[in-house]
């Protein structure tokens, strides 16, 4: 069973990114369990984990949110590549946080980025996923923790 501390580590890794990169903290909405197929926004940064836990953790955000985030970071390039870069960085941060806290028990992959209409998010059948809404300014993204 996923522990609260583990979930918190992933959540903090994500919210911390907003706070540090854009000087504006993100808050989380009330978390819930995923029902049905994974639903992602425009850009998704994903890390896979093996070891004591198996599965994936991903951050998925709509283009609009990423655009504002980039603006706050004084970026003026809003290309597809930059968006990919950004969700990749968020995933990278989540991964770094997890390594710090559970480095011993987890093997964490280098982040990869999914984008486009219907990206294939790896999902083991029967695996429960936690969805944590990440609210930042008026936008909302999702952190999905899908681990056994």
């Amino acid at each position: 069973m996923l522990r609260e501390e583990e979930l918190k580590t992933f959540v903090e890794g994500t919210t911390n990114y907003f706070e540090v990169a854009a000087q504006q903290p993100a808050t989380i909405g009330s978390p819930y369990l995923m029902e049905g197929a994974p639903q992602v926004h425009d850009y998704t940064g994903i890390i896979s984990i093996s070891g004591k836990r198996e599965g994936v953790v991903y951050f998925t955000a709509p283009r609009a949110m990423l655009t504002v985030l980039l603006m706050k970071m004084q970026e003026n390039d809003f290309s597809h590549e930059t968006m990919r870069d950004l969700v990749g960085e968020v995933a990278n941060t989540i991964s770094g946080n997890a390594r710090r806290d559970f480095g011993r028990d987890f093997v964490i992959s280098v982040p990869s980025v999914l984008a486009g209409e219907k990206p294939e998010v790896p999902q083991k059948p029967g695996q429960r996923s936690f969805i944590i809404p990440i609210n930042w300014r008026s936008h909302s993204a999702k952190l999905v923790v899908s681990l056994t």
């Binding site: 980039l70 970071m73 004084q74 970026e75 930059t82 870069d85 950004l86 990749g88």
Partner: peptide
């Protein structure tokens, strides 16, 4: 490897 990060550091 991140463009954003490179520009961020430079800026």
């Amino acid at each position: 490897d991140s463009n954003i990060m490179r520009r961020r550091i430079e800026r």
